[in-house]
């Protein structure tokens, strides 16, 4: 019955709603391109941000500044930026969705991080840093798009949902 409903529904919810979170430490996080990736603010320099990522499946990780300098903390193990990235991803998407995407079991950020730590994941190169940073800029650019009072009838297909992930 339920599956029938989903397949015959014009307004089936496909993406669970993101949950609001504080953005100061981690302004951007996403599950995309087979990675948990995002941008983490530097604790000491407002001009600097770190681009951090963890790959799904093998948990290969990378962390560098947006100017492509390697993160000093990310040698042989997850740095604090990657740990923050994981916790904020869990706030935004829920542990279940983050765990499923990364292919790791864990009921909260701590257990997800610990489970990945245990496998001693490899450190990857910083090739993803530029595209991730550019996705962050693209994300910020939405703030600059003008609102309109012309109706968007297509938005009828996108109802909100109260469902909690």
């Amino acid at each position: 019955m339920l599956s029938e409903h989903r397949e015959r529904s014009s307004t089936a919810r496909v993406i669970p709603p993101a949950r609001p979170r504080k953005l100061a430490k981690v302004p951007f996080v996403e599950l995309a391109d087979g990675r948990l990736q995002g941008v983490v603010s530097s604790g000491s320099d407002v001009e600097r941000v770190y681009v951090s990522s963890v790959a799904a499946g093998n948990y290969e990780f990378a962390c560098s500044t947006n100017n492509n300098r390697p993160c000093g903390g990310a040698y042989g193990a997850f740095c604090k930026h990657i740990r923050s990235l994981i916790s904020e991803a869990v706030v935004q998407y829920g542990a279940e969705r983050v765990g499923r995407y990364l292919k790791v079991d864990g009921e909260d950020a701590q257990s997800i991080t610990a489970a990945m730590d245990l496998t001693s994941p490899a450190q990857g190169g910083n090739t993803a840093a530029a595209p991730v940073f550019s996705r962050f800029l693209h994300h910020l650019a939405y703030l600059e798009l003008a609102p309109t009072t012309a109706p968007l009838p297509e938005m009828q297909w996108f109802p909100p949902t109260r469902a909690v992930v």
């Binding site: 709603p17 993101a18 949950r19 609001p20 979170r21 953005l23 302004p27 951007f28 935004q92 994300h139 910020l140 939405y142 703030l143 798009l145 003008a146 609102p147 309109t148 009072t149 012309a150 109706p151 968007l152 938005m155």
Partner: peptide, 15 residues
């Protein structure tokens, strides 16, 4: 009648 206002937004702006 209806009156609408819409805007593109970053996905972290909610509620």
């Amino acid at each position: 009648v209806r009156a609408s206002v819409s805007v593109p937004k970053p996905d972290t702006i909610l509620g």
